[in-house]
Design a protein around this nucleic acid. Structure first.
Length: 505
RNA sequence: GGCCGAUUCGUCUAUCGGUUAGGACGUAAGAUUCUCAAUCUUAAAAGAGGGGUUCGAUUCCCCUAUCGGCUACCA
């Protein structure tokens, strides 16, 4: 067998924003393609004209670009196998549908949705297949002239795949091994609808994967049950020799139990399920996104990569490059993974720590300006450096650093009661004198002098330092006190202490 | 209901028949400290149940249970 170049595709349907499970599928396709020196295609499967949502396609492209998942060809990228939007390939599908019709692998059916509905009510287990198709209104049961006349009269019809019963169909899955399903349980799937002259997923998928020379189909487990149908379709077209290899990925599950992760879960459980914020054009509803929630794309990629796959050792913090070199479909797990948002936060924390103070400061600056403060980037980077280790998200920075920009207007009551006793005002006045006499506000130098003073006077270290913090910050939390005062500067520090003395006595 | 798939700490997972069943998140305790975090150390925490196969099963097979997916003129 000549090893043909690896080609994979990510083929979302533009019926809404791409959700996080879809992102993972795209990521695995990307990792696999890169690992094997192959190509990755973006194909838009917009064959459901009813559910089409404007903006969804642009959203998908933007989201994957944000995450660093790059395509080699497809919608928005160009390429030799286009068009890559299925709605623009109608003629192609029609040609292949006719091929199936001509060689008797498919037939035309006139049963209306209402008729099928009625049939299902009458027979609870009704399935349109070899056992029932001869009782229905289709080109197998109707005289040819009647079929022809009906079509010419514009009667709506569908084309159904004629599945021969009683055959074990083997799907060879890279992740799951051999999966065998008997063709008798498959129904005569609709391949094509005259109503919009569009194929259904199954037909379009097979035709496109074949024409685009896709070698590996990596998709979610929800497709496993229809994989035998796809095998049969490849066979019906005579393409079995070049049929792609399948890999069905385990699903991402809800964190709290039942079912696969759905678009609703985000708002219900308080975390995003979409990469980017999404504004629903019809309902006006806004769904939160990872980007807007303050996630770094590399953290999302790393987190997602490890949900259903592992490198085989204990490493967890992995860059895209490392993921690519380590990726192997055989190391994908077979069972669904519950989505653990807490771990996602931890990943982001790790990546925040990896970024320089300056980079984080640049991300923070726009948020700071929203709070009506400006700051020189060098200074902001120093501030960020003090609190970076305690945040997981850039947007936590304001609550951690607000006191650098706004002097406290009130003081945390509980701490005041605990730390600001009667003589504290006097001691704070002493502290002011100490600070005035300091040759420098540099953290270590200031610390040495101030702590020396407290010890020498026999004051209570905890009380004095906390009162100091209370005066400067407003509450008893935060980074090293003398790092704070170094940045704040002598005058501001003293002013804040004076104000606290006035207010607290 | 039918078909398919899956099942190791609360969660994500390692283990390719022989291990004190390992790591990470989270949780708890301790260390550190002017505070709160962060950090470091430690701890608790798992093979769904039942049969086989085998000298030996978490690992292989079967059954049951549970979970998940599919069962559209949606993808």
């Amino acid at each position: 067998m000549t090893a043909s170049k690896v080609r994979v595709r990510f083929a979302p349907s533009p019926t809404g924003p791409l959700h996080i499970g879809g992102v993972r599928t795209a990521l695995y396709n990307y990792l696999f393609a890169r690992k094997n020196g192959g190509e990755m295609i973006l194909r838009i499967e917009d064959t459901d004209s009813q559910r089409f949502v404007p903006g969804a396609e642009a959203y998908i492209i933007e989201a994957l670009e944000w995450l660093g998942i790059k395509f080699d060809e497809g919608v928005g990228y160009g390429g030799q196998y286009g068009p890559y939007r299925q709605s623009e390939r109608k003629d192609i599908y029609r040609r292949y549908v006719d091929m199936l019709l001509d060689n008797g692998k498919a037939y035309i059916a006139f049963d209306t949705p209402a008729e099928l509905e009625a049939k299902r009510n009458e027979m609870p287990n009704f399935q349109y297949d070899a056992s029932t198709r001869m009782q229905m209104r289709n080109s197998l049961t109707l005289p040819p002239e009647e079929v022809k006349a009906a079509i010419e009269a514009g009667t709506q019809y569908v084309v159904r795949f004629k599945i021969e019963p009683g055959e074990d169909v083997v799907v060879n899955d890279i992740i799951r091994g051999e999966v065998v399903i008997n063709s008798s349980i498959l129904d005569d799937k609709v391949l094509y609808k005259s109503a919009d002259n569009l194929p259904t997923y199954h037909l379009a998928n097979i035709v496109d994967d074949h024409l685009m020379e896709v070698t590996h189909v990596i998709r979610g487990e929800e497709w496993l049950p229809s994989a035998p149908l796809h095998v049969l379709l490849y066979r019906a077209f005579g393409w079995e020799e070049t049929m792609p290899q399948f890999a069905h990925l385990p699903l991402l599950l809800k964190p709290d139990g039942k079912g696969k992760l759905s678009k609703r879960d985000g708002d219900r459980l308080g975390f995003p399920v979409f990469p980017l914020e999404w504004h629903d054009p019809k309902t006006g509803e806004i769904s939160s996104g990872y980007r807007e929630a303050g996630y770094l794309p590399e953290a999302v990629v790393n987190f997602l990569a490890l949900l259903g796959w592992n490198p085989g050792d204990d490493r967890e913090i992995l860059s895209m490059e490392e993921l690519i070199s380590l990726f192997d479909l055989h190391r994908c797990s077979k069972s669904g993974a519950k989505f653990d948002y807490e771990k996602g936060k931890w990943f982001n924390h790790q990546y925040i720590q990896q970024r320089s103070d300056r980079e984080i400061a640049e991300m923070y600056l726009p948020l700071l300006r929203e709070k009506h403060h400006d700051c020189e980037i060098e200074r902001l980077a120093r501030i960020v450096g003090l609190v970076k280790s305690r945040i997981s998200f850039v947007n936590e920075l304001w609550e951690q650093t607000a006191f650098f920009f706004e002097a406290p207007t009130e003081y945390e009551e509980k701490s005041v009661r605990k730390r600001w006793d009667e003589g504290m005002g006097a001691r704070m006045n002493e502290l002011i004198e100490i600070l005035r006499s300091l040759p420098t506000m540099e953290s270590h130098a200031a610390e040495e002098v101030v702590l020396g003073w407290i010890t020498q006077k026999g004051y209570h270290m905890g009380n004095v330092m906390n009162a100091f913090r209370l005066a400067v910050v407003g509450y008893c939390k935060g980074p090293h006190m003398f790092d704070i005062t170094e940045i704040l500067g002598r005058e501001e520090t003293i002013q804040r202490i004076q104000k606290a003395i006035e207010r607290l006595g």
